[in-house]
């Protein structure tokens, strides 16, 4: 076969393949786009993304051990973060003022379980502005056995660990459970450019076991709601419910809340009330 014939044949084959593909593609029945179903699935995935981060965090919590408890608190804050909030109100400029290397801590829930006091605290690490700040922040977190939830370049690859530059302009947070006589446990974490983007009755919520083992029912509920939400009602599977007042967290526009079910029941739903 001559060269040009071969070329023509080759071209024809590719054109034919294109036409055959187009014809075969027409075979599929194009119904109405399942918009509502996609929306529901998307929202579920969004919620699950939190849960995925949580699951990853539980592993990290093992290496975190009890070291988080002795972390120095920035700005003299003693738990609710207000003292530190005052120090950040006047446009902080240095990394230390912005809490890039030492987090702000705010207690968002507390109680007693099996006779031992527990509390849930959220640590907020300020957004680094340069690569150097980001690198030092990652190192500071590593000293506490923590790693930030840096998202990969691909939107569908969540929970991957990229390079420190991906932290620039993003606030990181870790939600930690402190239960007397037990090692501290990181419940969930996240890294976001605009943390707490919720309005009205929007809510992001995760339910997880309270105790250290995975056998415990998902009795502990941690979530965030819009800054305007007055109260949150957590409903349990046995029909009972718990009402809590969500708390302001420095570094977030949203408020956070924690509910804990009694030993024999677990999370069913949560909603903003009042």
């Amino acid at each position: 076969m001559r060269g040009e014939d071969r070329e023509r044949n080759h071209e024809m084959t590719q054109t034919d393949i294109s036409l055959l593909l187009a014809d075969a593609a027409d075979e599929v029945e194009i119904g109405t786009a399942p918009v509502q179903s996609v929306l529901r699935g998307g929202r579920r995935r969004k919620a699950r993304r939190w849960a995925v981060a949580t699951a990853t965090t539980l592993v990290l919590a093992v290496s975190a051990g009890g070291t988080l408890a002795v972390t120095g608190l920035p700005g003299g804050a003693t738990g609710n973060g207000h003292a530190a909030a005052a120090s950040t109100a006047s446009a902080p400029t240095t990394p230390d003022e912005r809490h890039v290397y030492t987090p702000l801590r705010t207690q968002i829930g507390a109680g007693t379980e099996l006779g031992q006091r527990w509390k849930v605290t959220i640590e907020v690490w300020g957004a680094p502005r340069t690569k150097a700040e980001a690198t030092r922040q990652v190192a500071a977190m590593a000293l506490l056995g923590l790693r930030p939830a840096i998202y990969g370049k691909d939107a569908d690859r969540v929970g991957t660990y990229g390079n420190a530059s991906e932290l620039i302009g993003k606030t990181s947070h870790f939600v930690v459970r402190d239960w007397q006589g037990h090692p501290e446990k990181v419940l969930m974490f996240g890294t976001d450019a605009s943390p707490g983007d919720l309005t009205g009755t929007d809510m992001e919520v995760a339910s997880l076991p309270f105790a250290d083992g995975q056998k415990d029912l998902p009795r502990l509920v941690v979530g965030q709601v819009a800054g305007t939400a007055p109260k949150v009602e957590c409903t349990w599977h046995d029909g009972t419910s718990t009402v809590v007042v969500p708390r302001t967290v420095t570094g977030f526009r949203t408020k956070w809340f924690v509910c804990l079910a009694s030993e024999n029941t677990y999370y069913k739903s949560a909603k903003v009330i009042g």
Partner: peptide, 21 residues
């Protein structure tokens, strides 16, 4: 057909999660 619908739907659900971006 069904595998195709499933693939597109799950892709669009992921798109929803990252929609702002």
């Amino acid at each position: 057909q069904h595998a195709a619908e499933d693939l597109v739907q799950s892709t669009l659900e992921q798109v929803y999660v990252a929609w702002r971006k």
